[in-house]
């Protein structure tokens, strides 16, 4: 299987904010044990998906575990070398709040009348377009969370012992596209309806991410905790051509 590289623009703070929102807890009072556990599980899954997990994610994992261990100490047993008496979470909370402010600020900027997106001037050359590519109201972490749920629901037994039908991510992209164009739009979980193995689920997931990346599909959430919906975003032939073209390159490469 070809290794698909996926740019992760989001960092450990984004992941934490995602988990905080998902658990509907307050930044200022993070249930550290729960969040740490979920953070580590997400990290493991991301590594399993072969996503490029930056070192910063591991540093944050260590920080969380450290905070968790300090929270377990009796309150009166103050450590002389640490800042006395403060909540071990304080520094993390401060960072999260600050980061959240700038995420909001970025959102404000994005809502302005942007040159060459909303308004145009006489200018010799095109400038930028602010466009957050595919993931409209859903973050990568929302998707990975949803994937976790799907994986957890897979039958635990392996009675079906892998019928060796190895479908590549690229083939899966084509199949998904056809399906999407036939059905208009589908809910995230339906993508995996027929999947019986972990591998199959993961291949499907990666195929979907690739389709988002090449703008062949769009993906969004209608309400905060509502279902994640996927729909085609470009003419079928155009995208199939693109996928096929890339496949040919691979064959050349492999030969």
């Amino acid at each position: 299987m070809n290794k698909f590289q996926l740019e992760i623009f989001e960092g450990p703070l984004d992941l934490l904010l995602h988990l905080i929102k998902k658990n509907e807890v307050s930044i200022t009072d993070i249930p550290i044990a729960v969040i740490t556990e979920q953070y580590l599980a997400m990290l493991e899954l991301m590594e399993g998906l072969d996503l490029d997990v930056a070192g910063e994610f591991l540093v944050m994992a260590a920080t969380l575990v450290h905070i968790k261990s300090r929270m377990l100490l009796p309150a009166d047993e103050t450590e002389p070398d640490e800042d006395e008496g403060g909540d071990p979470r304080d520094e993390l909370v401060r960072r999260l709040l600050e980061y959240q402010r700038f995420k909001d600020a970025a959102g404000e900027l994005e809502r302005r009348d942007i040159l060459r997106r909303d308004v145009f001037a006489r200018s010799p050359e095109p400038t930028e377009e602010v466009d957050t590519v595919g993931f409209e109201s859903v973050s990568l972490f929302d998707l990975i969370s949803a994937l976790r749920t799907v994986l957890e629901r897979l039958p635990k037994d392996s009675a079906h012992q892998v019928v060796l039908e190895t479908v590549s991510v690229r083939e899966k992209m084509s199949l998904l596209l056809d399906d999407l164009h036939r059905r208009g739009k589908i809910v995230f979980q339906e993508l995996f309806a027929g999947a019986v193995s972990r591998l199959e689920v993961i291949v499907t997931f990666l195929a979907m991410l690739e389709l988002v990346k090449i703008r062949a599909v769009k993906i969004w959430q209608e309400q905060a905790a509502g279902p994640i919906v996927i729909a085609p975003a470009a003419p079928l032939e155009e995208v199939q051509e693109k996928i096929a073209g890339a496949a040919i390159e691979d064959e050349d490469h492999g030969a």
Binding site: K21, Q100, R101, E129, S137, R215, A234, V239
Partner: peptide, 27 residues
Amino acid sequence: LKEMEEMTLPQPAEEETPPVSSDAVTA
């Protein structure tokens, strides 16, 4: 910039964001 005090989660999702803008869908 919003004041830090206002910023306690959970926050409501951004309702005004349409599913996808017309320029984001071109392939």
